[in-house]
Nucleic acid binder design. Structure first.
Lengths: 201, 201
DNA sequence: ATGATCGGAATGAACGTTCGATTTAGAGGG
DNA sequence: CCCTCTAAATCGAACGTTCATTCCGATCAT
């Protein structure tokens, strides 16, 4: 998950993520990070400017990882439906495989502790931009309702995020069948219906 | 929003919410709360056990307020569609009218700083339970797809939450029309199919 | 007068950060 | 192969600040 960093940075970032999820920001002290990562506080400051810098670096690293994960194979085809299905499926799978990263982004994407700059990179380097483009195309081809594509992507993101949240909180089990149902539901919810109904491939 | 509290408690809770949204938990110090609310630190401790207690009381107060707001008029009718439309419409409106409360719950419902007990009360006293019941009934009557009602409610909640998030972050404008489209989309996304007739009105 | 309410300086712990000392790694010369 | 030198890496005690909380005196209501 932190392949582009050196050993020390990797240890610090991994440890920080773990503590941050288990405790919270104010309980995640530098001394605790130092103790658990095996890197002395002095050395942490050799590689990071500050505590804020550690957290923001963590944020950016996870966003980058998530973006690459979700978009894997995204450009293998031009057809909208398979790209839609594949991307959302990968998003769900990512969140289930890396729940800590999911929780962290979910909890801190709204936080003032994350620099606007980090959030900006999230948008450019993440999967949001390409997904918006896909929806835009779907609207252009008359497959989706004519509505702001960013709003539609946002809605669907919310659906999956909350589905995963419910699963992680143990409110229900996120089965394979439920995942497929959810993706299909999202597709149906924005499909341009009525007049253009048929149109078999 | 904090009608059931006395003047001092109300001032503290209101001020805390404001600071918490603008800064973050670790920057929200008791001395700052004291200064901005006009209540001395000593007096805050006369009405609250600790800082944690203030935050958790705030959490519970907002959840209670939200629950009452969303469920207003919920039992005026037995028909599913109007109850569905009305509840989600009120949820969106609540979030737009009280963005600070929305942000707070959104940011801290996952946080370890909020006691499990507070989260538990959120579920019982909030709107989640009654909404689940509504979906269950809709499934029973064959109007919704046969799927875990809690999962469906969770998905729809996510849709609206993220729509509002996008709006609050300035990514797009949440117009009246978009709200109506979103509610209709949610309905369509879980409607038991076969009767693919277009939506009236 | 007396108990509830309030104020704010005092306290002690904890935190982020700094800094000089120490260790490690690697290159170059003999 | 070993010794020397140097710069980077690493360490952790120490520093100054800030914070949540306490304490006790002052004020208010009855």
């Amino acid at each position: 998950m932190f392949e582009s960093y050196n050993k020390v940075q990797k240890a610090v970032l991994e440890t920080t993520l773990g503590i941050l999820i288990e405790k919270d920001l104010q309980a995640t002290s530098m001394s605790l990070i130092a103790k658990q990562s095996g890197v002395s506080t002095g050395n942490i400051y050799h590689y990071f400017d500050s505590k804020e810098a550690v957290i923001n670096e963590l944020y950016k690293a996870i966003v980058k990882f998530n973006g690459e994960y979700v978009l894997k194979g995204f450009y293998d085809t031009d057809d909208i439906r398979p790209r839609f299905d594949r991307a959302w499926d990968r998003y769900v799978r990512l969140s289930l495989e890396h729940p800590q990263g999911f929780r962290f982004i979910e909890q801190y994407s709204f936080s003032p502790y994350i620099y606007p700059e980090s959030k900006g990179e999230a948008y450019e380097g993440g999967w949001c931009g390409p997904m918006n483009k896909l929806y835009e195309e779907a609207i252009g081809r008359g497959e989706f309702v004519k509505e702001n594509p960013a709003a539609l992507v946002q809605m669907h993101t919310g659906s999956f995020v909350y589905l995963i949240k419910g699963h992680l909180e143990g409110r229900f089990q996120l089965t394979e069948e439920l995942i497929r149902t959810a993706i299909r539901s999202c597709w149906n919810s924005v499909r341009a219906e009525e007049t253009a109904s048929a149109d078999p491939a």
